[in-house]
Computed example of a mutant assay.
Amino acid sequence: MNVNKSLLPLVNPLSKDNPVIVQVLGICSALAVTAKLEPALVMTISVTAVLALANVIISLLRNTIPTSIRIIVQLVVVAALVVIVDQVLKAWNYEVSKALSVFIGLIITNCIIMGRLEAFAMTNRPWASFLDGIGNGLGYGIILVIIAFFRELLGSGTLFGCQVIPQWLYDHGYQNNGMMILPPMALITAACIIWVHRARNKDLQE
C-alpha cells in the first residue's frame, strides 16, 4: 500500500514499526493495565495525548535546548503533561484513576515516550512530530486493547464490565479462566500477537 511520505510517522507505528510488538517497548504497561478493557483504553488515550503534545513541545524547543540538559528538559515537559492528564482523569473518572493507580505517573518514564522525544522530536518539525506521537500512541494502544479484550473476555466473561458470555454457558459448566487476569498471561498474549504479526510480515523475521 502506497502511503504519502508525510504520513509515514503516523502509519508506520500502527504495524510495521509498532513500538510494542516490533520494538518491544512499553511491555510493562501491557502487564499492568490490561486485565480490563476500560483501564487499557484510558491508558491508551493518556499515553497518546502526552506523547503527541510532548513531541510538539520538544520539537518547537529543539534548537534552543542545550545538549547537556536535553534529557532533563524532556522529563520536565513529560512530567508536566502527565500531571495535567492525571488531574483531568481524577476529575473525569475517579474510579478508573484509582484502578490505574501509579501507572499514570509512570508514563513519565515510559520508554516509548522518551525514545520518540530523543529519536524523532529532537530532529523533526512540529507537525511531523505530532503525527509521530499520535502514531506511536495509537500503535501502543492497539496492542493494549487487543490484550485487554482477550484477558477480560476469557478471564472475567465481560467487556467493559458488561457480561457478554451467556449465563446458560455457565449453567452448563463453563468457567472463566482465572489465569487470564494474572500478569503472566498478558506477556503470553503479547507473545502470541508478536508471533502472528511476524508470521504475516516476513521482512521482520530474523
Rank of each mutant, 00 (worst) to 15 (best):
N2Q: 14
N4S: 14
S6W: 04
L7H: 14
L8Y: 02
P9G: 11
V11I: 15
P13Y: 06
P13V: 10
L14W: 10
S15Y: 05
S15D: 00
S15I: 12
D17A: 12
V22L: 00
L25K: 13
L25I: 02
L31F: 12
V33I: 14
T34H: 04
T34W: 06
L37W: 02
L41N: 04
L41F: 15
L41M: 13
T44L: 07
V47F: 07
A49M: 10
A52R: 02
L53D: 01
L53K: 05
A54N: 05
N55Q: 13
I57Y: 01
L60G: 11
L61H: 08
L61F: 11
L61N: 09
I65Q: 03
T67P: 07
R70T: 10
I72C: 06
Q74L: 01
L75V: 10
V76N: 01
V77D: 01
V77C: 00
L81Q: 08
V82W: 02
I84V: 15
I84T: 12
V85P: 00
D86S: 13
D86A: 14
L89S: 10
K90Q: 03
A91K: 00
W92V: 14
Y94F: 13
V96H: 00
K98P: 00
A99H: 06
L100G: 05
L100V: 06
S101Q: 04
F103R: 04
F103I: 02
I104Y: 01
G105E: 05
G105S: 08
G105H: 09
L106I: 13
N110V: 09
C111F: 07
R116W: 03
L117K: 01
L117A: 00
N124L: 02
R125G: 10
P126D: 12
A128Q: 13
S129E: 05
F130M: 14
I134T: 10
G135K: 07
G135S: 08
Y140W: 08
I143P: 03
V145C: 05
F149H: 11
F149D: 14
R151H: 06
E152R: 06
L153W: 11
L153T: 11
L153E: 11
G157Y: 00
T158W: 07
G161L: 09
V164S: 08
V164D: 07
I165R: 12
Q167H: 09
W168A: 15
L169Q: 13
D171I: 02
H172A: 12
N177Y: 05
G178L: 10
L182E: 13
P183F: 05
P184V: 09
M185D: 02
M185H: 01
M185V: 08
T189V: 14
A191K: 08
A191F: 15
C192S: 12
C192T: 11
I193Q: 11
I193R: 08
I194M: 15
W195K: 12
R198W: 11
R198E: 09
Q205M: 07
